[in-house]
Amino acid sequence: MMMGGIVDSSTDYSAPALTEGIAQVVAVEGDMAWLVPESGTSCGGCSSAAACGSKGIGTVASRLEQRRFQMVNDAGLKIGERVVVGVSENAVLRASLIAYAIPLATLLVSGGMAQWAAGHDFITMGAMLVGLVFGLWLSRVRAGQMMARGELAPRFIRRASMGETCNLE
């Protein structure tokens, strides 16, 4: 961790690294809080801004609303509060592998086998489609297992300070 340009020697590098982000509390139901992640300062300002827009369906705001998540409210959070939440870096990597690498691997393997066995474009395309569907089913099962272990759930780290943005680095 950098502190004024000097490396902080007290940083515990053996601790599991977290991917952090800022979220805002939008609802509190009993001992659970609903949060919506905040967009980074570059969101809406990049080359995709035309595709995202700023209002309505498919926009940054609506995408973030779709990513609304629930968390146990141990810290006594109130509506409107901004908090820093985090998930383990390993969980992000594993989630990426499950979501994309598994379907891609089954798609390519089934396509390769069909091409080797039949050597016809239409059969290869059909086999790839079947492989993709199988891979998506497999990734659904693996994601369910990760979810059951609580690996995909964000953790409360601290309340965000005034002016703190998503660009935490």
Binding site: V87, A91, A95, A99
Partner: peptide
């Protein structure tokens, strides 16, 4: 849509990258 349907938690974690790929 597929990631969202197959696993909503994965979509919540990774969905933010997808719109960037269009451009």
């Amino acid at each position: 849509l597929t990631v969202k349907k197959v696993s909503p938690p994965l979509f919540q974690m990774l969905g933010i990258y997808l719109p960037l790929i269009t451009t």
